[in-house]
Design a protein around this nucleic acid. Structure first.
Length: 802
DNA sequence: AGCACGCCGACT
DNA sequence: GTCGGCGTGCTC
């Protein structure tokens, strides 16, 4: 007998193990490890992944596997093993690990239906009417009509049966194509036989005398300017044939990427690329930290390294933060490698993502450029993995499996014996420390290409401005410079970091802040709907007209949004043309690109925006960058807040003066003395690194210590506290003296959606037993978790400590 | 996660 | 008596 070991699509502790199924005789040759299959599970049918095929099973009463969902395995041996590794590293379920490696389109969709059986004797009239003319209805319809009990009885009587179906989420896109059924000679002969008046038909035959491959019907029609009936005629005569053929949804259809050639490298670049090329050539794994200031030409290094990899007949993965995966970026890769490139990012529809992914799987492309999840691209012959802006926190997935793309990259780099290149102008402290220790190889590019000077930065103390009577959000210097650039017809970028300082509403008399009744967090004011919203549970409320505490009518809106800045700008500088870029103005597909194009073409003077304009903008006419308030994220309860502030300010400053014209940066802040602001002003990463390393050392944070965070949540406060207490003391008993276990303490957000949250933070250097201990905790509380009362989340190397 | 099974209180 | 509420335990 041939048995398949299957991981079923049920994300729960109890089902997080293989289930064995007999492979029916006619499928024995077909079923391979890595395939998705449909299996019976209890009364249902569900999707599963075959992880092994073996001759026997320990289990007595096996069921038969129903059918495969793939023709060839969708996960190769490497990815199957990578899934196991992910499960171990992030303490997630096996099924979640497999699913995260695949495009969402491949996740199964389940349907439940009611079907009349052949036995229609004595069928109650009500049942008849519910079914109507059909013999099958969706389960939901019976629920809606409230006749479930009725149905259940008939199921027992054998008149109705419950059907479980597993469906694909996305169909392969198919379009009508026309192909010739005759040889060219035959076609030519038939053309002669056609009546004289069949002008159009003859034209079509001419076309097919030239054409090699099948042609899309739609394209054929528009190209020849004919109607469908012409084709129909020829099809009826048997000359041509209509065929449904699979096509890719192409998000870049009708776009031409002009080809670019490798650029000559600067001395810095030459020095940096050598070790990478050597690693490619010698097929050995090495992790490089490419530390190059903004404008030092990191992308060209990526491009030329990839070129080398392609010459070796291998493939490349390039990870880019979602936010900078702009058309500009895509253009650079498509320009160099043309059709060899697949692009994976969140702007694509599920179908488009699936199609791009399939190009990788079918080996039709050799390079993938994408966000975090592209690290799982199913290449089998990887030659290089590049992570651009490696310090970006978006490389860490915040929901299960809580993996970091950098770690996955290094894992895959080891398996494939290929280099991993981490690039940044402001490396994460973790990576830089590793480079200093020699774990990674440091490659520095301290100079900008063409040796342009880094932009001059001025830091403005906004408290000073306030003291001198300037209550606006623009300092006098910034305003002066803006006016100057407007006059010179040069462009300005204004940056506002709204994140971390959302607009809240406060009473000016008593300080009352409107909070969410379900979560211990202030409500955010939404201008568009004129309502207050909770970002965590979705609760909504009206804006109070007077203070609920003291009845004062002095309600004030805090936190400056881009909209408010825009209004202000219009007031102060009525002639300036402003383009605003934030989530609201870029939500529509393609609007991001459109706005940038407008700005590039000079249709506006000022580009005002959030996070999303901090990266990748490279326009020659930008000579002034203003940061409206540098310290909005500095005071978050996050040990990385200084690092993030420094990175963001450096990043934004890099937008100015990238070409001939000299750039200037004005940073407004309420804490100019803070080292992350000050050193960002001097663009001095090395000193920032030193300073921040000291702080991390004193407080025992990464990179000196690893972190793991356990968050417990429950509806009852007492229960939450007592369970966290037990967990904490258990963990403590399993740790060495070197490790520190902080807790139990309330989470920074102590209540979300009426669930109390407590946590335990573990700081450690080397704890080989920790993983086992954490697993044990999840096992221990398994029942209480599955009953729904308790939630325990474990985050190994967390990025958000909330 | 679903789903069946089973045991108890509230009704026709 | 039976309908339907939810706790319990299993799924190859």
């Amino acid at each position: 007998m041939t048995i398949a070991s299957v991981i079923v699509d049920v994300p729960a502790k109890q089902t997080d193990r293989p289930f064995d199924y007999v492979i029916p005789a006619h499928l024995v040759e077909v079923i391979k490890p890595g395939m998705r299959v449909i299996v019976p599970f209890g009364p249902r049918k569900i999707q599963g992944f075959v992880i092994a095929v073996k001759p026997e099973s320990d289990f007595g009463k096996l069921k038969e596997l129903i059918e495969p969902m793939d023709i060839t395995p969708i996960l190769n041996q490497e990815l199957l093993a990578l899934g196991e590794w992910l499960t171990y590293e992030t303490l997630c379920y096996k099924i979640s690990a497999f699913q995260v490696m695949l495009p969402a389109a491949l996740k199964a969709k389940y349907e439940k239906k009611l079907k009349l059986t052949a036995d229609v004797t004595n069928l109650p009239a009500e049942i008849r009417t519910v079914f109507g003319a059909d013999d099958m209805i969706p389960w939901e319809e019976a629920v809606k009509l409230g006749c479930l009990n009725l149905m259940q009885r008939e199921v027992a009587n054998g008149k109705v049966e419950i059907i479980y179906e597993v469906k694909e989420r996305v169909r392969k896109k198919k379009l009508k194509h026309i192909i010739s059924r005759l040889t060219k000679q035959q076609l030519a002969a038939e053309k002669e036989n056609l009546p004289v008046q069949a002008v159009k038909q003859k034209e079509v035959i001419d076309f097919f005398l030239d054409a090699e491959a099948p042609v899309e019907l739609r394209k054929l029609l528009s190209e020849l300017g004919i109607s469908a009936s012409t084709i129909k005629g020829l099809v009826q005569k048997g000359f041509l044939e209509e065929k449904e053929m699979e096509v890719y949804r192409d998000p870049f259809e009708e776009r031409v990427f002009s080809h670019t050639e490798a650029l000559p490298l600067t001395e810095d670049q030459e020095k940096a690329i050598m070790p990478i090329l050597a690693s490619i050539r010698e097929h050995n794994h090495e992790t490089f930290l490419l530390y190059g200031v903004t404008g030092s030409g990191k992308t060209e290094i990526y491009l030329q390294s990839i070129q080398k990899v392609l010459q070796e007949g291998k493939e490349a993965i390039v990870l880019v933060p979602e936010i900078s995966l702009t058309p500009q970026m895509v253009k650079r890769f498509k320009g160099r490698f043309g059709n060899e490139v697949a692009v994976l990012h969140s702007g694509l529809s599920a179908g488009e993502k699936y199609d791009e992914w399939r190009k990788i799987q079918k080996k039709e492309v050799k390079v993938v450029v994408g966000a975090r999840s592209a690290i799982f691209a199913p290449f089998e012959n990887l030659g290089i993995i590049i992570i651009d802006e490696e310090h970006e926190t978006s490389y860490k997935q915040e929901d299960n499996p809580k993996y970091h793309a950098r770690n996955v990259a290094i894992k895959r780099g080891t398996t494939h014996q290929c280099p991993v290149v981490l690039g940044s102008a402001t490396p994460s402290l973790e990576s830089f420390a590793r480079a200093q220790k020699g774990v990674y190889t440091l490659l520095s590019m301290p100079n900008r290409m063409n040796n342009q000077a880094l932009p001059g930065v001025e830091i403005i103390d906004m408290r000073e401005e306030l003291r001198e009577g300037n209550r606006s959000m623009f300092s006098r210097l910034l305003l002066e410079k803006i006016e100057d650039r407007l006059e010179k017809k040069e462009q300005i970028v204004l940056f506002l970091n709204k994140r971390g300082h959302s607009s809240f509403v406060m009473c000016r008399d008593c300080g009352y802040v409107v909070n969410c009744p379900n979560c211990d967090i202030s409500l955010t004011y939404h201008r568009a709907s004129q309502r207050m919203k909770c970002h965590y549970c979705g609760y909504e409320a009206h804006v109070p007209k007077s203070c609920p505490e003291c009845n004062s009518e002095h309600i004030r809106y805090f936190g400056t949004g881009t909209q408010k800045v825009e209004e202000e700008l219009v007031k102060i500088l009525p002639h300036a043309k402003v383009i605003r870029m934030d989530v609201d103005t870029t939500s529509r597909k393609g609007s991001h690109e459109k706005l940038l194009d407008q700005f590039q073409e000079g249709h506006a003077d000022i580009l005002l925006g959030t996070q999303m304009i901090a990266k990748g903008l490279d326009f020659p006419n930008i000579t002034l960058v203003g940061v409206l308030s540098a310290d909005t994220m500095l005071h978050l309860p996050d040990f990385r807040s200084s690092e993030k502030t420094f990175q963001l300010l450096t990043q934004v400053s890099g937008r100015a003066g990238r070409h001939e014209k000299e750039g200037q940066v004005v940073i407004q802040t309420y804490t100019p003395e803070h080292y992350s602001v000050e050193l960002a002003g001097e663009q001095d990463f090395d000193r920032f690194y030193e300073k921040e390393m000291m702080v991390r050392k004193i407080h025992r944070y990464p990179p000196f210590y690893y972190l793991s965070l356990i968050t417990v949540s429950h509806e009852e406060l007492m229960k939450t506290v007592s369970i966290t207490e037990k967990i904490t003391s258990f963990i403590r008993s399993r740790l060495s003296n070197e490790a520190i276990c902080l807790g139990p303490v309330a989470s920074p957000i102590p209540r979300i959606n009426n669930r109390y949250r407590y946590q335990c933070l573990i700081k450690y250097k080397r704890e080989p037993e920790l993983n086992t201990a954490l697993k044990k905790i999840l096992d221990q509380y398994q029942q209480e978790i599955s009953l729904g009362g308790l939630q325990i989340s474990v985050d190994v190397n967390p990025f958000i400590l909330m």
